[in-house]
Structure formats: C-alpha cells, structure tokens
C-alpha cells in the first residue's frame, strides 16, 4: 500500500514536472523566435486610443503647458490640449519601452526621448524630425539599458542605466558616476538570468542550441506523459498458470 502511494506520488510529480519542462522550453523558444509569432499581434496595435491612465512616462513642455508627451510600453503620444486628446508621435524607429521623455528648458521645441534598449533620440522641432544621439558611452542593446533620463539647464543631460549615471555637458562630453554600492552585481543578474534562459550568453549559436535542447526536452516530456498514461502491465496470476500447467501435463499423459 505504501509502495503504491509512493508510485502515485512519483507519477503525478513526474507529470507536473513534464508540464513545467514544456512551459520553460516553450517560453525559451518563444523568446528566441519572437519574429515568428509577433505578426499575430500586430494588427491595430497603434490604432488603440491612448489615455493618461496608460502612461508610464509623462512630461510637460515648459514652453507650452498644454503640450504634453506621454508613453506607454508600445508608443509615444502627444497632446496639445493639456491631455484631453492624444495622438501618436512617431519616431523613425519603433518607440517601444520609452524610459524617459524630457523637454529642454532653454530651447523651445527641443525634445529628448530615451528608449530603454535602443538609445537616445532628439528632436529640435517639436517632434517632427528626429535624430539618434550616437555619442552614448555605452550600448543599450547590449544589455546596459537606459532606465531614466533627465535634462536640466545648461543643457546637461543625464542618463541612468543599470551600471551607472552618465552626464553629458553642453560641450557634448560624457562623464560617468558609478552607482553607489556596486549595483552591477545585483542589477545585471536579471539580464544574466534572461540570457541563461534564452541561450544568449553563448552568442549566435546559443539560441539555436537552446532551441534544439528545448525541443528535445519537450519531446522527452511528451513521451514521458504518454508512458505515464499507458495502463500498467498486470502480473500473471499464479493460479491460472498452475491450471494451465496441470492441463498440459494431463494431455501429455
């Protein structure tokens, strides 16, 4: 009875583990092959109405209090009537994951927008024509994502990333103030876990290798599940065997 209980426990834990393995493997593949499924969610994404309730970033124009900029996870929006109506403000790249919006206090129409994983963009005509600031002393796409943006008089531009606090003066020179408490160990851990999960830590071949391993794990899990549902083979009944043997002996005689 005890043994049977352990068997049942082992079986159900095995089933749950198999499902978990499938989940982990499938999410890793989904992260690595996002281009294969993102198309399903494209339609109408930019057509959605925006309201301040969705804003993750918000900034007011110091030269025009009615002019507001806001951003959600997917796009940048502007309002010229104090936030009553919003319309999408397009950059020439997808304005995804905006982590900072700032108006330059000394120059009307000058806007800075920081995209978490893409970089820093600037417009000096109120958002009609944009250009990227290629002078950044780090590469957001390589993992040092921009987390905050601040523009003050001078103009001085400051960016905070996971690893440091960068400041650009009016002459265009960057200085770095490392964050107190050596935060890179803690903060970059998240990126490392993500890289471990997707195989990105191993360069170009990592995701491909992970895909193969993930598919193998899914196959193992599914075949394991199939085996767990197969009915157990019954032990042969000794009384039936004995009867058959005696019948056989009688015939032989």
């Amino acid at each position: 009875m005890k043994r049977r209980g352990f068997y049942q426990l082992h079986r159900w834990l095995g089933i749950l583990s198999s499902l978990f393995v499938c989940l982990v493997a499938l999410t890793a593949i989904a992260l690595n092959r996002a281009d294969l499924w993102r198309g399903w969610f494209l339609s109408g994404q930019s057509q959605q109405a925006f309201s301040v309730a969705q804003a993750l970033q918000l900034a007011a124009d110091p030269h025009d209090p009615q002019h507001l900029l806001a951003a959600d996870l997917h796009a940048l929006y502007q309002s010229h009537d104090g936030g009553q109506r919003w319309q999408e403000l397009k950059l020439y790249v997808p304005a995804e994951k905006v982590t900072g919006i700032a108006f330059e206090p000394a120059q009307a129409g000058a806007i800075w927008v920081a995209l978490r994983d893409a970089g820093l963009f600037f417009s000096d005509d109120g958002g009609e024509i944009w250009e990227e600031d290629f002078s950044l002393p780090f590469e957001p796409i390589k993992g040092e994502a921009i987390e905050a943006l601040l523009v003050s008089q001078g103009p001085t531009l400051s960016l905070r990333t996971a690893l440091g606090w960068y400041r650009k003066d009016a002459a265009g020179n960057w200085t770095q103030i490392p964050l107190v408490g050596n935060p890179q160990t803690v903060l970059s851990l998240h990126d490392w876990i993500w890289r471990l999960h997707t195989g990105r830590f191993a360069g170009l071949w990592g995701p491909l290798l992970y895909d193969v391993i993930a598919l193998s794990l899914i196959l193992l899990a599914l075949t394991g599940l199939r085996l767990s549902w197969r009915p157990r083979r019954k032990k042969p009944d000794p009384s039936v065997n004995a009867a058959a043997r005696s019948g056989h002996d009688a015939l032989a005689r």
């Binding site: 690595n32 092959r33 996002a34 281009d35 993102r38 198309g39 494209l42 994404q45 930019s46 997917h74 397009k90 020439y92 790249v93 997808p94 995804e96 893409a118 796409i141 170009l204 995701p207």
Partner: peptide, 27 residues
C-alpha cells in the same frame, strides 16, 4: 503603408536594429 517594424513589418530576432534600418530605408 506604414512600412514600420511592429506595425506591418516583423523584425528578425537578433537583427532588431538592422530590421529597423531596412524598414526605414524602404520607407
């Protein structure tokens, strides 16, 4: 058409910036 990544163009994983550039170039 928008000819824009995440609007009507899907980027290639691992080539995100290049995908943006190509879409911007076609536009």
């Amino acid at each position: 058409d928008d000819v824009e990544v995440n609007a009507d163009i899907i980027h290639i994983t691992g080539s995100t910036i290049s995908s943006w550039s190509m879409a911007a170039g076609v536009r």
